[in-house]
Amino acid sequence: MGIIDKKVSLRNRGKLLLGVYEDEDQLMTAAKKLAGHGIPVLDVYTPYPIHGLDRIIGVKRTNLTVIAFLCGLTGFSLATLMIWYMNVHDWPMIVGNKPLVFATSWIPVMFESTVLCTAFGMAFFFFWRNRLAHGIQPELLDDRQTDDRMIVVVEAEHANAEEVMSIYRSTGAVETRERVGGVQTTIK
């Protein structure tokens, strides 16, 4: 799994099968049924987090922690390099009879730099990965997915469209749709 999650983007995808729900429990039933039939769920869009749904649709653990570690390491190395260059290499400076190289006095700078780089690095990677930068057109499937509708998305190439639609209907979806190239059509 790459650092950038391709899953979050809906661009450049084939036919998508959407099931729109109004009820959390019906959505959970549908997700379980799809999983039971071995149909991979691309994603579920909900206005609020639903406890346990992530495990059912097989959301993988985030890799943001790897980024955090790498950013921290970068910050630590940069701080070490900076202090070494400034205080040891370029302009050796002894303050208060303290040792010149790798003194305890380096620790606060190293610590702060590590924390700074980790925090900023994680924030930037999080925004990049989730396409949350300012000005990016949001990919909403339905305006009400941020309000009171929940949408299950399955890619048609990985599943039988009829089977998916029948699962949607049998579990109480208020609407079933197809989405091809950004255009949605309601399927009765």
Partner: peptide, 12 residues
């Protein structure tokens, strides 16, 4: 631990 050590070490 470091806060105690560092301040004392610095100030001497």
């Amino acid at each position: 631990w470091l806060s105690q050590l560092l301040l004392i070490w610095y100030a001497q």
